[in-house]
């Protein structure tokens, strides 16, 4: 356990050191991107990994918050109003999503969230008098909380890091709380949970709201990071990218979505410098991970590492071959 805490402290220190260790703004910005997408992926993971509910409309939730913030700022309101309005818009949209989609679970849940996400995208794209259509809305300034400017890459990174750490802590508390256990219960045995007296729908609803809150926070970070929002950020591709982060890293783990976000953002930025075919690669990674490493990179590599460790210790080839083939409990079942 102490090893764990030491590793955690080292990781946090390393994250704090990023702007000092890296002088080039470009890489600090990529680090900010990783952290803000990680917040999004952590929110999606609550639903996908712990609730067993795969959403393909989550970009609509963060997008609603982004648009609300951008709209309020463009209308001349201050940052406090914009952020509060964005959180409210994100949560309201989430409540609407949850009310409609939680009638179903499994595959139907995917279809309904996909359709709902497309509605939000359609509104952003077509409701030109509010959203300025395909041209999007620009945001003139980043906020300056307590007089600290976020205009520079380093300043924004620090703010994003604080939000990210709070999000991770909130997720850890949520997951280890009795409510988190109840949520995992509704994922694995909804009927038994019902028989035990849990209101399955209500448990899922509040998990959805928490997930939506994190998505809205990520949406606010996104709009301040880019200082711009357009319908592209709400497209199905964006929701799928989020899902790829969760699944590639490892759904139902705390570290998985963060690793997944880092993987996707790095591949996207590095690869796009060489080839323009990012969507093809996204699809290919998706297919490969689903087919060959369905439990995700973090649990997958932990499994491989443990198998190798045991094999090396026992010095018995047969033991290495009989590595545990069972999937970890994190894998959501339809």
């Amino acid at each position: 356990m102490t090893v764990r805490y030491a590793l955690l402290a080292a990781a946090i220190l390393a994250l704090i050191a990023v702007p000092y260790a890296i002088t080039e703004q470009y890489y600090v910005n990529i680090a900010s991107q990783i952290l803000l997408y990680a917040v999004f992926a952590l929110g999606l993971n609550i639903l996908v990994g712990y609730g067993g509910l795969v959403s393909l409309g989550h970009a609509g939730l963060s997008g609603a918050a982004s648009y609300a913030a951008a709209y309020l700022l463009a209308a001349g309101h201050g940052h406090v109003v914009a952020i509060a309005g964005a959180l409210a818009a994100g949560l309201l949209t989430t409540a609407g999503f949850a009310a409609l989609s939680l009638r179903a679970s499994g595959i139907s849940f995917i279809m309904i969230t996909l359709a709902l996400g497309e509605i939000i995208w359609g509104l952003a794209y077509r409701w030109i008098s509010i959203t300025n259509g395909d041209n999007g809305i620009s945001v003139a300034t980043r906020p300056a909380p307590f007089g600290l400017s976020l205009a520079s890459a380093d300043g924004f990174y620090d703010a994003t890091l604080i939000v990210f750490l709070i999000a991770v802590a909130a997720c850890a508390i949520f997951v280890h709380s009795p409510f988190g256990a109840a949520l995992a219960g509704t994922r694995d045995q909804p009927r038994r949970m019902n028989a035990l007296g849990f209101h399955v729908w209500m448990v899922r609803f509040w998990a959805f709201m928490f997930s939506g809150l994190l998505s809205a926070v990520a949406g606010i970070l996104f709009v301040y990071y880019n200082e711009f929002i357009s319908p592209q950020a709400l497209a199905l591709t964006a929701s799928a990218e989020g899902l790829l982060m969760v699944i590639s890293g490892g759904a139902g783990t705390l570290l998985g979505p963060v690793v997944g976000a880092a993987l996707v953002v790095i591949v996207k930025n590095v690869v796009s410098a060489y080839i323009a075919r990012w969507n093809f690669l996204l699809g290919a990674i998706f297919v490969l991970i689903v087919v060959f490493m369905p439990e995700g990179l973090v649990p997958g590599s932990v499994r491989l590492f443990r198998a190798a460790w045991r094999g090396a210790r026992r010095r018995k080839p047969a033991a290495a071959a009989a590595a545990p083939a069972s999937m970890p409990a994190g894998e959501p079942k339809p």
Binding site: F280, V290, P334
Partner: peptide, 25 residues
């Protein structure tokens, strides 16, 4: 593709999603 994942509906849906991005590109 889908036959390899028989019985795993979630994985099948995700594979069709991945393939749709590849085809579009």
């Amino acid at each position: 593709l889908l036959r390899r994942l028989a019985g795993q509906q979630l994985a099948q849906v995700l594979v069709t999603l991945g393939v749709s991005f590849m085809v579009a590109d």
